[in-house]
Structures are given as C-alpha cells and as structure tokens.
Write a protein that binds this DNA or RNA. Structure first.
Length: 421
RNA sequence: GGAGAAGUACCCAAGAGGCCGAAGGGGCUCCCCUGCUAAGGGAGUAGGACGGGGUAACUGUCGCGAGGGUUCAAAUCCCUCCUUCUCCGCCA
C-alpha cells in the first residue's frame, strides 16, 4: 500500500512513477475524498469531545445528588448525530482505502520504464549446452527414467498434478536438502509455516481482495486457503507487531509446497512441471530497516545465483522493467534458467524489494533504540529456489545421448549416485 | 464434536454503568540510603492509530481480545466472532 501522505503532498511525482508501469491514475477524486474524510473526522470528533464533557458533568451532578436529566435530550441528539457522521466517515474512509490499496508500488528510480521487452540481462552464467544428438524434453526424460509419473499424478489429483516416484522423489528431495542446508549455513532462520492460512494473511500479503480467485479456498465456516507461496505466510509473521531496531534485519527461509489454481493459464508449451497446481519451493524472506534493504536485496540475489551455480546450470539474471515487476514490489531481479526443449529461459527465482509497501498494509513496524516514533520496515523476498522447475532443467541440460542424466555434484551425497539411468 | 472457565498495560492482577486513561504488586528506568552479589526509601513507567497545530510546544478522538448493539453515559449490560485453559469424546 502506498503512503497517502505522499500522494497528498506530491501527487505529480507519484503519478509519474506509476506511469513507468504504464499505470495511469487521476488523483483528483482521491484528494477530494481525502479532504471530505478529514472534514468529517474533525466534525465528529468535536461532537464527541462535547459528549465526553457532558458525560463527565452528569457524573459529577449525580454524585452531588443533583438531577442531570435536563442534559439528556441534547446529548441524545448529539449522539444520534455522531452515529450518523461516524457511518459517513467510515464510508468515505473505505473509499479512500480502496483507492489507495489498488495502487501498485512505485518502481525504484533505477528501474526502467516499460514492459517485459525492456527487461535487461545483467549477468549470464555458463552457456547453452550443445548436444551432438537429438535432445529430449524433460517430460520424456522423466518418464523414461521413471522419475515422474504424470498419468498417475493426474489420476490422483486431476489435470495439473504430477507425482515424483523413486529416484525422482529422491532428487527433488535432494534439491530441497541442498537449498535448506545452504541457507542454514548462511545463518538464515528455518521456518515451516502452516500451509492453510486465514483471510488476514491474504490481505496482509496484498493478495486479497483482488486475487481471491487465484488461490484454493477451503470448505468451512471461516475463510481459509492453501498458500500460493510461503511468502504469504512469512510476510504475516510479524503482522501488527512493533519490533525493536536491534532485531532487524531478520533473515528467514521456509520450505512449503505452493498451491495455485492457475486457472486458464495452461499452454501447450508449458508441459510437464513448468506450471502446476502444486510445486515445491524454498522461499527466502527478510525484514529490514529501510537503509538496509538495498544491501539485503543484493544478498538475496547473490544467494539465489550461488544455488543455481552450485548445480552447474546455465542461467541468466534479469533486471525487470517496471511493467514486469509485480504490483507489490519496487524492484525485481529474476533468475531464468535455460530450458533447451522450450528454447527459452524460465524463471526459477524472483528476488524483490517491496520497500515499505507490504509493511504498511501488514503494519510491520519497528522502533529504534531511544526513539519514540515507529517506522515501517522494508520487506524482501526471493525464491531460493523453486525446485520443481530446476529438476526439469537438470534433466534437460544434463542429458546424455543414451537418455541418462548426470547428477549435479552437490546432490550426489544425498542420493548416492552420479548418473541416473 | 460436547460441556465449562477466562481474555484489562512488559508480566501478574483489582474493577461489576458515571468518581476509570483504569487500584495493587512485580519488572524496568532514575534518584537517595547502605562499601559493595542482601536489604530499605522515593519518583517515573499505555502504547498505538487517526486528526488539529508554525508538523514545535501543546491539543482532540478512538483504544480494557475483535466487531456490533443498548444507554445521555460502557472495561462494566446484550449479541456475534476469535483465542487460551480444564474436562469428556474421537483420533494420526
């Protein structure tokens, strides 16, 4: 959520920044509503002050044994008026909130304007493998090697599900182990959150109300949903809390499956495990003071890159243009891994700095030592990494002429073999 | 799933329509006394959100789990919800 004060004070600047996303707004309506809101608040608060004073007087008169009923009529009228104005103020306040909540984050100054076409590759690791034979896609490789059972996955869960079997499950698990142990080595705190979350989590994460349809909702009296990413849980960890400055930065990571409806997004070229209703991901998350968040973003990017490099896979690091940065974020770098069969790079990690945008909505605050006022934290997140897209990349990039696949060295200690036949 | 009880500040806890921005402890901060890992005395200790104000002093409103309601007036009465605890049932 953006700061309404900033819009009040400098609407043109905000407008200009949003335009980089190709997002056009007119703040006149908002500013009018905001004025009306202030007016109503002032009016109703004056009445309340009067009522409070009168109530005190009544108490005093009664204690002195007098009769205060002559005050009641007038106070009744004031109370009715207060009720009426309170409702009106709440309505206007809601409109203001709705307007502001719908606004995406301001892209950082160094984020270029425009859409995907303006994304910039800032780093490349390794190179496209060249096969002296006809390379297979990961679906065929995984099926032939009995790593993934697509048909029985569909039998169990329906379209968009697969299951890992035997060595496939072991490799997937080895990837998770590899990531987890690297994060622990780096001093990050391991979190295993609930997979089912309440509505407040969706709201705090900026997911709701806009994207309610994108999640799997559970039956029951209360609104519960399956988390689409561990980020949704982690951002809410300190919701409505005030941490002390010394506790920051907090570096966390979590492993969860991610559950997504992905309604209508299936495409023929995204076969296999590129897009499913459930996939595994290790998520990194950081809560920081504002002045630390740039350094933390670098740190997260670096960590994510190192993980892929450890696997020896060819990838590129891309800095996203404003229009491709998701709504809550101010800056995003994607790690895109080479998928030979698709002849394109697919995202395996997205490292973003939300600045105070998420924190404002989730009320994530901290207080510096000796200071009285609270400040909003900055939040950052990044996949580290999504395993379900890495396994296909490993299969495709490491395949041999005979259909076998070389196991990346860092995974060998987990599964005990160096080639899958 | 059934039956009870409870949620008040950093913690414990009183309060039962107006005298409650909320007694009393503990803790913490400062001071005094005391030559010192004890003890005693005194003072301070509700945050936060949203407004007003030269965005300063100061000041208004809301805050006793959350949201509604009754009333001139609600921590206190009523309703709904959430959470915690105890007992029973069921169960990985």
């Amino acid at each position: 959520m953006l700061d309404i004060k900033k819009i009040r004070e400098n609407p043109e600047e905000v407008k200009k920044a949003l335009l980089k996303r190709n997002y056009k707004v007119d703040f006149n309506v908002l500013l009018e509503l905001d004025e009306e809101r202030k007016k109503l608040i002032t009016e109703v608060e004056e009445l309340k002050a009067q009522r409070n004073k009168a109530s005190k007087d009544v108490g005093q008169i009664k204690r002195d044994g007098g009769d205060a009923s002559h005050l009641f009529d007038e106070m009744k009228k004031a109370s009715d008026k207060i009720k009426e104005l309170d409702i009106k103020a709440a309505e206007v306040d809601n409109k203001v909130k709705e307007f502001v909540e719908a606004l995406p984050n301001l892209p950082d100054d160094d984020v270029v304007a425009g859409g995907k076409e303006n994304n910039q590759v800032v780093k490349t690791f390794g190179k496209k493998p060249e096969f002296g034979f006809e390379a297979k896609n990961h679906v065929d490789l995984a099926t032939n090697l009995k790593l993934i059972d697509y048909e029985r996955g569909v039998k169990l869960g329906g379209n968009g599900f697969w299951l890992y079997s035997g060595m496939g499950a072991q490799i997937e698990w080895a990837l998770l182990n590899y990531f987890v142990s690297e994060h622990i080595k780096d001093g990050y705190e391991f979190i295993l959150p609930p997979h089912m979350l309440n509505y407040e989590c969706g709201y705090g994460a900026g997911q709701f109300p806009k994207f309610e349809e994108d999640v799997f909702r559970l039956q029951g009296d209360r609104f519960m949903f399956m988390l689409p990413t561990a980020e949704t849980a982690l951002i809410n960890l300190y919701r409505d809390e005030i941490l002390s400055g010394e506790e920051l930065p907090k570096r966390l990571f979590a492993y969860t499956p991610c559950y997504r409806r992905e309604a209508g997004s299936y495409r023929a070229n995204e076969r296999g495990m590129i897009r499913g209703h459930q996939f595994n991901k290790v998520e990194m998350f950081a809560f920081t003071k504002p002045e630390e968040s740039d350094a933390l973003q670098k740190e997260l990017i670096d960590k994510a890159c190192r993980l892929v490099e450890g696997l020896g896979l060819h990838y590129q690091l891309t800095k996203l243009a404003a229009g491709d940065v998701s709504a809550s974020m101010a800056s995003t770098y994607d790690i895109e891994i080479w998928m030979p069969s698709m002849n394109e790079y697919k995202e395996v990690s997205s490292v973003s700095n939300a600045r105070d945008y998420q924190a404002r909505r989730a009320a994530l605050r901290f207080k510096r030592k000796g200071e009285k006022k609270t400040e909003l934290m900055h939040t950052l997140n990044g996949s580290g990494l999504a395993t379900s897209r890495l396994l296909p990349a490993i299969l495709e990039q490491n395949q041999q002429a005979d259909g076998s696949v070389i196991v990346p060295e860092v995974l060998r200690k987990y599964i005990g073999i160096d080639i899958i036949k």
